[in-house]
Design a protein around this nucleic acid. Sequence first.
DNA 1: TCGGACATGTTACTGGTGTAAACATTATTC
DNA 2: GAATAATGTTTACACCAGTAACATGTCCGA
Lengths: 201, 201
Amino acid sequence: MSEKDNTVNIASEKNRYHHGDLRSALVEEGLKLIDTAPVDALSLREIARRAGVSATAVYRHFPDKAALLGALCLEGHARMAKAFEAAMASASPGVEAFNAMGRAYVTFALAHPSLFRLMMAQPDGPVPVPPPSAGGGGSDGMQILVNAIDGLFGPDAPVHVREAGRLRAWSLVHGLAMLMLDGQVPAEPALIDAVVDASVL
Amino acid sequence: MSEKDNTVNIASEKNRYHHGDLRSALVEEGLKLIDTAPVDALSLREIARRAGVSATAVYRHFPDKAALLGALCLEGHARMAKAFEAAMASASPGVEAFNAMGRAYVTFALAHPSLFRLMMAQPDGPVPVPPPSAGGGGSDGMQILVNAIDGLFGPDAPVHVREAGRLRAWSLVHGLAMLMLDGQVPAEPALIDAVVDASVL
DNA sequence: TCGGACATGTTACTGGTGTAAACATTATTC
DNA sequence: GAATAATGTTTACACCAGTAACATGTCCGA
């Protein structure tokens, strides 16, 4: 107990050999960096530098760079889930909730371009919308999104119809987000609306 | 004339100081490499190595790496245009042609993952579907694609409706392609059909 | 035909990266 | 309190993009 507290206090001092909670610090710095730079400009050494630690210290907490990026992804998914819940909260159920979700998806991507790219490039990581035939619950609180989508088709719709609809909805917002991130389509709210607010899926 | 021919002949010999047509050779090797490796594993030096030339020789033909990648993109767009034309040729006009186009888009992405990514990450390069409010002709023979899409809405549809439809169509296929490339959705033909063949846009 | 100008190649070097190995220091545990 | 494990550091290597200086070949005009 007191030893734990002592450790934390020591950890808050400067110029010590042991950092205290380097792993968290690395993730923190990584998240700060990734929000202000393209993905490929995110270097292990830079993160270590910002955490005030030698480059190779990272390897005491992550087997390689990909593992650190994986940790960033995890935090990214948590943030995305929050954004989704917020969007859900301020929309009445049904089509409106569905549209709010789509807007939240694109908005999140535009707000955190590199993080979003990283999250999507991680095939093993948790996924915002479980793909068809993926069975049960998605990541975090994302099941609510699936419910919103499925709600559009009614509970009596065949499974393959709901699954196809889910995939189409995901493809639609994901494609728009990507095109805007890559600068192929201007990131104008009106265009987001034009894609998301369509009455028919 | 004969001097030209002579140059070409000399260029076909080995172990000469001057390559003959290094620029084309670099693009060629780059295209070969990019079809068998992820984008970020594509190094200037490796391309030069395969072309049998020193690393810095590249800089006599391209100001930097991005320029070489840009040249690869150009060839990529040409190939994509060919794929589109082929898809168009073997489909009757109307909805069927439109669907064939969508399938061709996703299929091309899956066949050339890194090249496709590169093409889409090039905001200044030619674009398969001109974005709304982009005015006139797109790249290469892509206008035919726009026509196919616009045909779905009839010639009397308001401009903003056709533009929105175009954007939705592009987002849909692009999103599906990206999700499959990133491994978020299994690259199964049935899923492509499920997304592309939907009767309503 | 000779000789310079130019194009196109080379080597040497800088500063950046990810990562492995050996060593140093601190924390923990018997 | 000493052995051990955890956590950092230094050093080193291989690779990368890009610059500068130099080498070699081609071409054009006297």
